[in-house]
Nucleic acid binder design. Sequence first.
DNA 1: CTTCTGACA
DNA 2: TGTCAGGA
Length: 124
Amino acid sequence: MKISELAARTGVATRMLRYYEEQGLITPHRLANGYRDYDSYLVDRVTKIRGLVDSGVPTRIIGDILPCLNQSQEIIVRDPDPELRMMLINQRDAMVERIASLEQNRDALTRYIAAMDQALQPTP
DNA sequence: CTTCTGACA
DNA sequence: TGTCAGGA
């Protein structure tokens, strides 16, 4: 598929798809006319990459972390950098906080929706 | 009309 | 990350 299609199917801007390629995260083939040609499995890969990026994981190590998403425990750490380790720990902790916040907000919406249903369909 | 590379008031 | 240029 061409870049526009991958962008549509992943919700990731073509600009970023080319950027991910520069970072070595994805390597599409090339069509005779020079256009990038993406294999369908890249849709899933790009979705995962975006998820990591949105979570604040530096693109430089996303390639190494990607396998962690599955359960293929064959994790190869190429950059044991202590500073990077601390940054990842901080991001992981921030993630935990956001998840907790999201859960509270989700529950708040659930209760509000329930209240709306009550107003619409009062129990006789 | 779509994509490509390179660049940045 | 968006967007514009200048080509193909």
